[in-house]
Structures are given as C-alpha cells and as structure tokens.
Amino acid sequence: MSGPPPIWKRYHVAHDTEYCYAYSVSNARHRAHLIPGDRPDQQVHQRTLTVNQPLAESAEGIDFYGNHYRDFAINVPHRLLSVQARMDVSVRAPVWPTHSVIWTGKSLARRSFDPADQVGTRFALTCAPYLVDSPMIPALPEAASWALAHLGSGKPLHQQLLTMTKAIFEEFVFDPAATTVGTPLSQVFKTKRGVCQDFAQLMIAALRSVGIPARYMSGYILTHPLPGQPRLVGADATHAWVEAWCPGHGWLGLDPTNGKAVTDEFITLACGRDYADVIPLRGVVVGGGEHSLEVSVTMTPEAELTQSASPKHDLNQHDLKLGKPVDTAGQ
C-alpha cells in the first residue's frame, strides 16, 4: 500500500557570478547552464538571467542532454561581467524504490536488441551516452574493482547503489584544498580527498566500469545554518551528485558527498556525462588578461522569505571594483 504523496517544497535561488578582468575585453561569447527546467519531481515557476553588459546576441536552447541554456555575445569593451540568475522552483522527494532487479555483477548494457523491444530501445536511447568514457571521466581499472567490492552481488540494485553512495561518504574526505577543476580522477581515487564534483565523477566512473549507466548532475542543495543563526547570504554553492539507471525505475538520484539519496532539498540545473557538459558559465573572450572570479549562491526556502527584496548586488556599484588589484589566487 502506497503512502501519502510527497509534499512539494518551494525555494528561491539567487546565483551571482562576476568576472573582473585586468584589462578590457573587446569581445566575448558565453554559454550559461543557469536555467533550470521542469522534471518529474521539479517544477520551475520563474527564472531570469540578467547580464550587466549590453548584448549583441542572445538565444536560449536545449542541448543534447535536454538541458536549457542561454548563449549570449558582448561586443562592447568591458572589464566586469556580472551574470545574475534568479529562480523560483518547487521540488518534491523522489519516490525511492522498495524493490528492484537483483544485481549479479553483470553489465546492464546490451550489445544488440530487437528493434521491436521497446524496453531495449528506451534503454539504448536514454543511457548510451552514460555508459562510456567521457572527457573528465576516463576508464579507471581500480574503480572497477572498488565498485564490485562495494556493490556486492545477489542483492537488489537500488540497495547496492545506496551502499556505494555511503561508502564514498565514509571512505573519502571532503577537502576543498585537495583538488582543482582539472585534477585527474585517478589522483582523487588515490588520495581519497576532494569535493562534490570529484566524488560524483568518481562514483560515475565506478558505476560505468561495471556497466551501470550513470550521469553527472549539477544544481543546488539546501544548507542548514547552525541553530539560532540566520541563513548566510551568498554562502551556498552549486552542488554535484549522481543519477544511476535502475531497470524498472529509471534514474535514481544519489549524493555521495553526503552519503544519501536525493531528497526534496535538491534543485537540478543540468545533467551530462561529466562536469564539462554542465559548467554553469563558460565562454571565450578576446583580451582581458588575468581575471578574478566571485560566485555567490543563496538558496532560501519559501517559508523564510520576507517581504524585503531578495539579496542582490547593485550593478551601479560594480565600477568600484575595477580600481582594486586583480586577485587571481585559486583560479
């Protein structure tokens, strides 16, 4: 007998990104994966993307993986780029399976199938990109043996996926100083230290190595201030987790950084093979030289919102930053 339907929870997210360049940028083209879309357990009520420079071109689209994006071009000289994303989104906790196929250690991938087989066709079209190596997630022989040891055999797959999720949480240490965006995954596996991006990509490598489709998820997770303390404005960050394919149920959300299944405190921005497919803001610029980057994220439950305006920077004050030394530390 099924229980009561999940309750929808609504959140407001403010995500600000600022690039301050040492010299003037004459031309720039950017792509922003900062536009959430509707999903089975996510409803987008409002979303806006604001750029502080006049745009020569601007267009929205949907990429190969089904993600919404915004492309824009700037043809006026500038030393400061500010992109502000605002969104109101409702999410509900995904229904976690009570049963699933028994995992026997064999790959879920099919070498061939009957074109009349609708299940096989759906699997091939949905999962093919997430079974093979990708630019930031190469094949790791050590990950395969680690995966088989933690998945075990003879138990329901959904249980084993959660067991692996908890194993990464218990065996690896969250350490922002241990890695950068370009740190090889083999090093993360060796040192057992990193951040959410590393742990998500490591789990994906392990799952793909044994034939379980897995994809990289980008978005936000609600953080909780200490008891009696206010929510800090701008102190949150984007988050990364995993979705693994479970026959009969589809994609299951798993967060190895926190050792748990995805709940109603996650908002999805985009999915892809790895981080390179879902970078929140990327681009190509002419000029600029060295630059500093500031990112501010605030995810607020609707119940905490007040009648005052949501926190955001005053674009009219941006020029004040240009007189300060450019800090490229950590870039």
Rank of each mutant, 00 (worst) to 15 (best):
G234M: 02
L157F: 07
A178W: 10
R29L: 07
Y275R: 08
A270Y: 02
T268G: 07
P156G: 05
H291S: 11
S209M: 11
V91F: 03
A73C: 04
P77D: 04
G3K: 14
A144K: 08
F266H: 07
R10C: 09
P247R: 13
N75W: 10
L185Q: 03
R39G: 09
D133P: 10
F266Y: 13
F266I: 04
A329M: 12
S292A: 10
Y275D: 04
R31I: 07
H224C: 09
T179N: 10
E304V: 01
V210C: 06
T121K: 13
K106A: 15
Q197D: 00
G259E: 03
V210F: 06
V285Y: 09
K260A: 08
T268V: 15
P4S: 12
A270R: 01
D114R: 12
E142W: 05
A303I: 13
G211Y: 02
Q160P: 03
V25P: 01
N316Y: 11
I204V: 10
I102T: 13
H30V: 03
T48M: 08
P325Q: 03
A59G: 13
G287Q: 07
T180F: 14
K312T: 08
E170R: 13
A143M: 01
C127L: 11
P54M: 02
D255L: 01
I204E: 00
E142F: 08
E171I: 10
E290P: 04
T306K: 03
M203L: 09
S153C: 12
Q187S: 15
F199R: 02
S112M: 15
I7R: 15
V101P: 11
L80T: 03
P156D: 10
F266K: 01
P311R: 10
L305F: 05
Y21I: 00
A206E: 01
V326T: 10
G253H: 02
N27P: 00
S186W: 09
Y69W: 09
L254A: 02
V242D: 03
H15W: 05
W96V: 13
V295H: 00
H291T: 07
F72W: 07
S308Q: 12
D41S: 12
W245P: 03
G61Q: 05
G152E: 01
H249I: 02
F64M: 08
T268Q: 12
A167I: 08
V286I: 13
G259P: 00
H33R: 03
A309H: 12
M1L: 14
Y19V: 02
A214N: 06
G272K: 06
P5N: 13
T165Q: 02
E243M: 11
A14W: 00
L202W: 07
L108K: 07
I137Q: 06
I267G: 09
G259Y: 04
G219N: 05
R193M: 04
L222G: 05
A200R: 03
P129V: 07
A178D: 12
Q43T: 15
S2Q: 15
T126E: 14
L49C: 01
G288F: 01
H150A: 09
S186K: 08
F72A: 01
V297S: 01
A206Y: 08
D319A: 04
D38S: 13
K260Y: 09
D38N: 14
